[in-house]
């Protein structure tokens, strides 16, 4: 999956789960939970939606890699068909 496409998909998923967050002017390096106030349930919901829409399951051991929008995008883009 192309990185740009993946990012758009994730931004859309986050907008469903936490619409109050504005990701348009972000670098993508911000820690999603710490910077934007997402709680762990939000985070899990985002990962569930990603799995449902792309088929990419992110195991707990890889959570460190997906704490930012950028990290999440790269992780998914690399693995999604």
């Amino acid at each position: 999956m192309k990185s740009k496409e993946t990012r758009a998909l994730i931004v859309d998923i986050i907008a469903d789960i936490a619409p109050e967050i504005d990701l348009t002017d972000t670098t993508g390096d911000e820690h999603l939970q710490e910077t934007f106030g997402l709680d762990s349930m939000d985070f899990l919901s985002i990962l569930e939606e990603i799995a449902a829409k792309t088929g990419v399951d992110i195991p707990e051991s890889d959570y460190e890699e997906v704490v930012t929008l950028q990290g999440m995008t790269q992780y998914v883009a690399k693995r999604a068909p």
Partner: peptide, 10 residues
């Protein structure tokens, strides 16, 4: 949803 989350927290 955003309205509620901003007021009540996630």
């Amino acid at each position: 949803k955003g309205f509620a989350r901003q007021r009540l927290g996630p």
